[in-house]
Design a protein around this nucleic acid. Structure first.
Length: 836
RNA sequence: GCGGGUGUGGCGGAAUGGUAGACGCCGGGGACUUAAAAUCCCCUGAUCCUAUAGAUCGUGUGGGUUCGAGUCCCACCACCCGCACCA
């Protein structure tokens, strides 16, 4: 009895070793082939590879293998985004060192990745927590410092007054510290910043060149950078001072009825000295977290300062409020309130009973139309505004700016929503910021020959806060300038800096320097960058910024790091819960008829919504376990099938079973290959040629689900066909088309069919253009916009013939019922539509 | 709250403004088998019907443009992602 089953448990490892021994996927920068740099966002070593990683890396892998088949020299590397908070949390909870926890995770996850058979160049692997890597990062940071792209200033953090520690936004839950439960306060600290705003205009302009980025990501970045033009001017205040404000709606200036300033505005501080009630209000504003979402959803609160501002045109005295929704970081930290045409101002004015004046209307006749129960921020005609009356919003903006500039009390300015990037973290497990504080010399950079500034190993996490700060000796150094006693900077860099240049280190990793510009030039930009949509703004913007900054200081000659971006969807799974709200994992439940019950004792289970796999909801499946059952190729196939890659992929047991079956189905098809078969089968040969073109197109567009569907179709056709040369051609074609997706099965079958060498080194099949064209097409016939019949006609048949054939149809005649034909629309090779 | 996205059979989805539901999963029926697994074949949006080479309805909801709309336009609903210290 011949065993015609494919056995992944022996084949997977065998071919993975074969690739490794042959160095099949080691990138050769010296090759004269055209280069392709395929990159997926590197993982944080959290402990185990999850299905989301598998999906992400499978997509990149198919592309990498496909590009290789197209004759490209491919760089497809992997590494570890290894700094970050979870390692410190593990240290606190499990009493393990963040470093050893991270290293152990990397080892385990690397083994998991290797089992999936990814075409990765492991020779370039590194972790961002390697002193070598972060040392180079420190050098680059110092380069940026020298180029005046780094500075220090005060900035707010979430402060836990009980744990006496800085909290990440994630650690603030409903305004309270996650561990202590104490009400979080905003506190100002001296912190390090990168001048990303220097590149605001360029980062915005650059989006226009990113044709192969999703439109939505470009839009999000555009809105994030937030270029706006408006008027900056000063109100004369009743206390004799001036209050500079910025507005994007100078056209509505006649509708202004109050001014609002941020709680940490200098004027607010001044008010505190005179009004005993101001202090407590500012304290109130200081409570709670620092996130924009929190600030904007919080109730709008104001404090009447008693100061008034004089309207520049009407001379009217308007009250000045301290308000919790005004941001000190944006514009001047003060705004004019126009309740009629700004929703936030509207709510504020309603609450504090301030006048709401219409100054924009749908037309001039509507000047006295009453305001509804919300603001009207839209376009219209200016009314009730003296010399602006009758102008469009746009003209009025220009007119007010013109008058302000002519009269010298204000000027048109551009303001960016984008703020400089605060990179200071008061944490241990990150890149030490390479500076030294000297009482005599101030803030002094660590000399480059003393890099890397490495993290001390002997740290404790018994108490919250930054272990670097309380380390007995690490911080004590001599000042590099004067030699006197000094202290190391204890802040570490935001982990987003680690991921802002790792792709450059993948492309080139010399020993003494971060990278070599000539090597970089060979590989960059990344041809395809694949990762989650959650990185649409921050990571991608920071990486674009670092690339520009490094180009600006002459380190590289690359403008945009990622030529094409693809954002893949999440892997989701149904959730299971008991009545008490506790979650159950998929392997704790089974289906009993239409219901779900626990395997253990048959307790009824509620099957809940399909959501992203997460440990907290227990709706996870472990890749290792699935590979044990079905092999790597079935898992890879599942990751690519059915769901479009940019959308969520619902994991299902029946789905992976189907994939497992298809692996065997293909194996039987390959097994049925008859080298002695003869004879033609033109329709099948045509399908094969069409598939070569279609699957290539699908892969290049990252439409893996469509490529999969086409392979199913061709497989079905080949299975049904009688043995022939054409059928053999179809089988060989399927083998090649499927090889980037199911590489282990493909290698096994390739060898079985008598080929020498690896299919991983093979070329994408050639197609015959003459074989792509169909002879006959099916034409739809519509009457009254509905399908009445279909006819078969030669491709390219003239309109008159199609019309005649359509009218000859019995169904069509019945539908017409003798009605007069007014018009016949013929779309060649597609349809005939009869209009009566 | 602000910015961005998604919505099509029981499920995942396909469809340059031109035959809605390709392909897969589930389900039903049959073949093979002592039986099962595996495999193979057929059916599978809903309703009506004289059961058909018929009709009507149907792509989140409500309108609109068009000979023709899942696709374009307007308004809405639901869910998802991001909001600068999660990565």
């Amino acid at each position: 009895m011949t065993d015609n089953r494919f056995d992944p448990s022996s084949a997977d490892g065998r071919w993975q070793r074969a690739w490794e021994e042959a160095g099949t996927f080691v990138a050769n920068s010296g090759s004269d082939k055209p280069k392709s740099f395929i990159l997926e966002m590197f993982p944080y070593p959290s402990g185990r590879i999850h299905m989301g990683h598998v999906r992400n890396y499978t997509m990149g892998d198919v592309l990498a293998r496909y590009k290789k088949m197209q004759g490209r020299e491919v760089l497809h590397p992997m590494g570890w985004d290894a700094f970050g908070m979870p390692a410190e949390n593990a240290a606190m909870e499990k009493k393990v060192h963040p470093g050893s926890w991270t290293r152990a995770n990397i080892e385990g996850m690397k083994a998991q990745l290797k089992r999936i058979g990814f075409a990765l160049d492991w020779t370039r692997e590194f972790a961002t927590c390697d002193p070598e890597y972060y040392g180079h990062e420190q050098a680059l940071f110092l380069d940026m410092y020298e180029a005046d792209l780094v500075y220090r200033r005060q900035s707010e953090v979430n402060w836990d007054p009980v744990d006496m520690t800085v909290l990440a936004n994630e650690q603030v839950i409903d305004g309270k510290g996650w561990r202590s439960g104490a009400e979080v306060e905003k506190r100002k600290l001296d912190q390090w910043f990168l001048k990303i705003t220097d590149f605001a205009e360029d980062l915005l302009d650059g989006l226009g060149d990113l044709k192969d980025w999703p439109e939505k990501v470009r839009l999000m970045q555009e809105n994030w950078i937030g270029k706006s033009s408006g008027l900056e001017f000063s109100f004369d205040l009743s206390n004799g001072e001036k209050l500079p404000v910025y507005t994007t709606r100078p056209d509505t200036i006649f509708g202004a009825s109050f001014c609002a300033i941020a709680a940490d505005h200098p004027l607010a501080q001044a008010v505190t000295a005179e009004d005993p009630l101001a202090g407590p209000f500012i304290e109130e504003c200081r409570r709670g977290g620092t996130t924009a979402a929190e600030l904007e959803t919080a109730e709008k609160l104001g404090f009447r300062t008693g100061i008034t501002a004089k309207h520049p045109f009407t001379g009217e005295a308007m009250p000045v409020f301290i308000a919790n929704f005004v941001l000190m970081d944006y514009g001047t930290g003060a705004v004019m309130g126009v309740p009629g045409h700004d929703q936030r101002d509207f709510e504020f004015a309603t609450k504090y009973e301030l006048p709401i004046q219409r100054v924009v209307a749908s037309d001039a006749g509507q000047a006295d139309a009453p305001m509804g129960d919300e603001a009207e921020p839209g376009d219209g005609v200016i009314v009730n505004s003296d010399f602006l009356d009758g102008m469009s919003v746009e003209d009025a903006k220009a007119e007010v700016i013109k008058r302000a500039e002519a009269d010298g009390w204000g000027e048109g300015t551009t303001v960016w929503r984008l703020r400089d990037w605060g990179v200071s973290r008061q944490r241990y497990w990150g890149t030490p910021i390479p500076f030294i504080h000297c009482e005599k010399c101030g803030v002094v950079p660590v000399p480059k020959d003393q890099l890397p500034v490495t993290l001390p190993e002997d740290v404790d996490f018994e108490t919250p806060g930054n272990p670097l700060e309380r380390h007995a000796t690490w911080g004590k150094v001599d000042c590099p300038t004067c030699g006197g006693p000094a202290r190391r900077e204890t802040d570490t860099l935001d982990t987003f800096t680690n991921s802002s240049w790792y792709f450059l280190r993948f492309a080139s990793q010399p020993e003494g320097t971060p990278f070599d510009a000539d090597e970089i030039a060979k590989w960059m930009p990344v041809e395809h960058y694949i990762g989650g949509i959650e990185h649409a703004i921050l990571h991608l913007l920071y990486a674009r910024f670092w690339t520009r900054a490094l180009a600006h200081i002459g380190k590289i000659d690359v403008k945009e790091p990622f030529a094409a971006l693809f954002t893949q969807g999440m892997v989701t799974h149904e959730t299971y819960s008991l009545g008490d709200g506790s979650w159950l994992s998929p392997d704790e439940v089974r289906k009993d008829g239409a219901d779900w019950v626990t395997i253990e004792d048959g307790h009824p289970v509620t099957a809940g919504r399909v959501v992203k796999m997460s440990k907290s909801k227990k709706n996870v499946v472990d890749p290792d376990y699935i590979i044990d059952q079905y092999g790597a190729d079935a898992v890879r196939w599942f990751m690519l099938s059915d769901s479009p890659p940019e959308r969520d992929l619902p994991w299902s047991e029946s789905g992976i079973e189907g994939c497992g079956r298809f692996v065997q189905r293909l194996w039987r098809l390959f097994d049925s290959y008859d080298p002695n078969a003869s004879g033609d089968d033109k329709p099948l040969a045509r399908k094969a040629h069409q598939a070569i073109v279609a699957v290539a197109g699908d892969i290049e567009a990252l439409g893996f689900n469509k490529a999969v569907a086409r392979i199913y179709e061709l497989t079905g056709a080949a299975e049904k066909a009688e043995p022939s040369e054409a059928r053999n051609f179809a089988i060989r074609t399927i083998l090649h088309l499927v090889s980037p997706m199911m590489p282990h099965l493909a290698e096994e079958a390739y060898a079985k069919l008598g080929a020498t060498g690896l299919i991983a080194d093979a070329r994408w099949p050639e197609h015959d253009p003459a074989m792509l064209v169909e002879d006959e097409v099916t034409i739809a016939i519509q009457h009254k916009g509905k399908l009445r019949d279909t006819i078969t006609a030669p491709k390219g048949a003239p309109k008159e013939d199609l019309e005649a054939l359509a009218l000859a149809s019995e169904n069509v005649q019945r539908s017409l019922g003798g009605a007069d034909i007014r018009k016949v629309i013929v779309v060649p090779d597609r349809l005939v539509n009869i209009v009566t």
